[in-house]
Amino acid sequence: MHKILSDKKTIIWLVAPGLLLISLLIFIPIAFSFNYSLTDWKGVGTYQYVGFSNYADIFGGDSIFWKSLLNSILLAAGLILIQHPFSILIAMLVQYCGRYEKFLRICIFIPAIISTFVTTKLWTSIFDTQFGLLNRLLDIVHLPDWKQDWLGDPVWAIICIIFVCMWQGFGYAFLLYYAGIKGVSKDLHEAAMLDGASQFQLNMRIVFPLLMPVIRVNLVLAVVSAFKQMETVYLMTGGGPANSTQFMSTYLYSKAFRESLYGYGNAISILLVVICLIVTVIMNRALSREVEG
């Protein structure tokens, strides 16, 4: 084995199929997308190269693009500050539920395996102004003044979308944290208990620090998913009302396929890739220091 791994030609032949596949599926499409981002192509017919004018238009005065970027950042913040701390807490509590542990684990993960279309339509009907369950419940508890046009008001619409996205992804976050907690050696638990540590001290001083590698991976995945969020937004509001719930992916789709500005849409896609790469590198470095520390 050592002889094979020391042969550079052999290593190249072993790595080449993977590199070729990655190039065909990732690098080459990105290169084509960048090429189209430099054109005024409308998706069909001929086109002309316009240089970086699409990027200049985005940075120069496209307020909707910046709104979509802000919404993506808000969703990422919601996932990091609300969804993940809560999922860690639930994962720690579920392990103490005895014979109900498996049942609770299944119930928590169910939303994550249901079709996005089904769950989105479910929540859309709940938020419906006239026949939605939420407004009906507010009538039942005698709080009619709290009733809202949940998906018709710009502020409430983005709040509802962030909530639904966190609800849909909660099961995956919970499962990863639960697996990480279960992976902590029982010997450490027993040693801590013999030293007189409480359950709270055990979780905070032993389990949580050992969970940092899992937290690192989970947070990076959460931020990337926030920036490429599309299905839930498209099915619930389509980016409305008045583009208040546009995310980068939905705005890209709108420009490329609704307005036939294919070159402009590709420029947005390239910026999306660049932003995701920058955020991933920054978070990996920041969280690596936490893990090593």
Rank of each mutant, 00 (worst) to 15 (best):
H142N: 14
M193W: 14
L219G: 06
K147D: 03
D57W: 05
I140A: 14
S198C: 03
V141M: 05
Q199E: 10
I73H: 06
P241I: 01
L70G: 11
P213D: 05
M236Y: 08
H189S: 15
A16K: 11
F127H: 02
P144W: 00
I73L: 14
I162L: 07
G18Q: 01
A173S: 15
L89V: 12
A173V: 14
M230W: 14
T116N: 10
I140K: 12
W123Y: 06
T116W: 09
L194K: 13
T39H: 07
Y172N: 10
V279E: 09
L21H: 04
F247N: 10
A31P: 03
F65E: 01
F34E: 00
T280H: 15
V184A: 04
G196A: 14
F86D: 01
W41P: 07
L19K: 14
I88V: 10
V184L: 02
L272I: 12
I4P: 06
D153L: 14
N243W: 02
S37G: 08
V281T: 02
M1S: 12
A191C: 09
H142Y: 13
L104G: 04
V233T: 02
I140G: 12
A226R: 01
V281N: 04
Y178W: 04
I126D: 04
I106S: 14
V274K: 06
A286H: 13
P144T: 01
F109K: 02
P241E: 00
F174V: 00
I140W: 08
V155H: 02
M283G: 12
I22W: 13
G98Y: 08
L70E: 06
I106Y: 10
